[in-house]
Design a protein around this nucleic acid. Structure first.
Lengths: 164, 164
DNA sequence: TATTGTTATACTCTATAACTATA
DNA sequence: TATAGTTATAGAGTATAACAATA
């Protein structure tokens, strides 16, 4: 019951009373009219497009997001990265481990606080990041091709209003 | 790497070169311009609103969605319900178990195929479904209150274009 | 042989709690 | 005392594979 990922749902009062035992298309009831469910379907679609680009490399959208933030915010601490992405410290730590094991990031001791590290991309990491971004851009292109040019900023604006 | 739920990400070429070791707000880079990330944030927001309504009852958006589909499609088989929600048969089976344990649904032997069941709400289940729908409607009201009346159908139309 | 549903199993991801080393 | 990071652990949810009964 948190920001994890499951199915989306919502509910409403539509009714259907017929018995259908051998059919294929079901009535989705309230889900036709409610925001949460199509929101989830769209997200799943986007997620799968991106996951396909990453293939079986072990890279996931989540893991890439950490790499992206490190790239844009070199020297951030793990706590800061985790907060930005709403990840617990242990989860963040494990993702940093994932990238460090692949020589993509390094933990540099902080000069100000010996408890923490600044996280940085390595040269290898910069290359990997760039390659992965290409995949991300392909996925994004596929997704946004379903919309017109006007609709993209429109959607972004609407989505921005929905989030916390 | 499927329709499960994790974080959303995408990536792009923004750059930032400053070292910031003790700060709070990070640069989100490509995520400011790309559809997938705000899509995920909006979905998480919607998910959490709904999960809050369900509280610690054990009901999840996923589980509710199965109940909703049973309500609108009485007599559907487990396979049909699972297909509609992109759930594996074992996962569907366990969710049906969840509701059956709470006397909310029943498996009626199919007259045509003795391998399968038609799934139906019990009287208890109809009441529970109705109560849960009230929670769903409250969550939906909170979510859609972030948009104007015009924007809601606009968003629904855009989201519909994005999904598979 | 193929399909419905179940059971067994394993995997991924996550969070909480406990620990360490600093502050 | 409180915080940064790590480790240990457990939980939720999922899928695949193997199985039974039936088609």
């Amino acid at each position: 019951m948190d920001a994890a990922g499951k199915t989306e749902d919502f509910g409403g009062p539509d009714e259907a009373q017929d018995v259908r035992e051998g059919e294929a298309v079901l009535d989705f009831g309230i889900y036709k009219h409610v925001i949460g469910f199509p929101l989830k379907l769209a997200w799943v679609s986007a997620y799968n497009l991106l996951a396909s680009e990453f293939g079986d490399s072990g890279v996931t959208p989540q893991r890439f997001s950490v790499l992206e933030l490190i790239s844009c915010n070199p020297g951030s601490t793990q706590t800061e990265l985790g907060n930005a992405l709403r990840l617990s410290r242990p989860a963040t730590s494990l993702i940093i481990d994932f990238w460090q094991d692949r020589d993509c990031v390094e933990r540099r001791p902080s000069p100000r606080d010996r408890r923490s590290f600044g996280i940085y991309l390595t040269e290898t990491g910069k290359g990997v990041h760039k390659e992965l971004q290409a995949g991300v851009n392909r996925a994004e292109a596929k997704l946004s091709s379903r919309l017109s040019e006007d609709e993209i900023p429109q959607l972004l604006a609407l989505l921005a209003k929905l989030r916390d």
